[in-house]
Simulated scan of single mutants.
Amino acid sequence: MNMSGPHLGGDYQTDNTVTGYDKNHLLAWQTAPAGTEPPGWEWVWDLKAEGSDATAVTLTYDWGKVTDQDLLAKIGFPLVPASALEGSLGNLASAVAG
């Protein structure tokens, strides 16, 4: 996936590994710089139906499994601004709306 962010010096690529899936309920994945093993951070979309035409979505961006102390020392939190998280939810909404 093509990405961009100052924390990695501008433009870069990632590989994404699905870590959880339950149709219509959950999608979780870990991301890593292309060609490397995921260092532990994970994105999770948790979906809960609210009637026949609405879904509540909770987005979690979790660094709790990262053990690389050198990596953690190089970054600050929040790493991803709220606007980017909102954009991710907007991308999900666009994808399912067709």
Rank of each mutant, 00 (worst) to 15 (best):
T36A: 09
H25N: 10
K23S: 15
V96Y: 13
T31G: 09
W63F: 15
L72A: 09
G51E: 09
D62R: 07
V44N: 12
G64M: 06
D62T: 11
D70F: 15
S4G: 09
G40M: 03
F77C: 00
N16W: 11
M1K: 10
F77S: 02
A49S: 10
L72K: 08
P33W: 11
V57A: 00
Y12D: 00
T58H: 13
S83C: 01
V44A: 15
D68Y: 01
K48F: 05
N24Q: 08
L27H: 05
S88K: 02
H25Y: 08
L89K: 01
A32D: 01
V66K: 04
D62G: 07
L92I: 08
S52W: 13
N91R: 10
A54L: 05
E37A: 15
W29P: 00
L79S: 11
L27Y: 14
L26W: 10
G10W: 02
W45D: 01
G64C: 06
D11F: 13
T55N: 02
L89H: 00
W41M: 03
Y12F: 10
L71I: 12
A34M: 10
W63H: 04
L92Y: 12
Q30R: 04
Q69C: 03
H25V: 12
E42C: 12
T67Y: 10
D53N: 15
Q30G: 03
K74Q: 12
K23N: 10
H25I: 00
W29D: 02
N24M: 12
K23T: 10
D15M: 09
A97V: 11
D70L: 12
T60K: 13
T31V: 13
N24C: 14
N91V: 06
W43F: 03
I75H: 06
P6L: 08
V18F: 05
V66N: 03
A28Y: 02
A95L: 09
A49E: 04
W63N: 02
V96E: 01
L71A: 14
A95C: 04
D15S: 09
A82W: 05
A34Y: 15
S83V: 10
P6G: 11
T58D: 08
G90M: 07
G87A: 13
A93H: 11
V44C: 09
D68E: 01
W63D: 01
T36P: 03
H7N: 07
D53R: 15
N91W: 11
G40E: 03
T55Y: 04
K48I: 08
L92R: 05
W29H: 05
N24H: 11
T36H: 13
T67M: 08
A95V: 12
I75A: 05
A56V: 15
H7F: 04
T17L: 11
G90N: 13
D53I: 14
L92S: 05
A97D: 06
Y12R: 00
L85F: 08
G40W: 03
F77A: 04
Q13N: 09
S94F: 14
G5N: 06
T60A: 01
A73S: 13
A49L: 06
E37D: 14
G5E: 00
G10Q: 04
V96N: 04
K74P: 01
A32H: 03
T36L: 12
D70W: 11
T19E: 02
L85C: 05
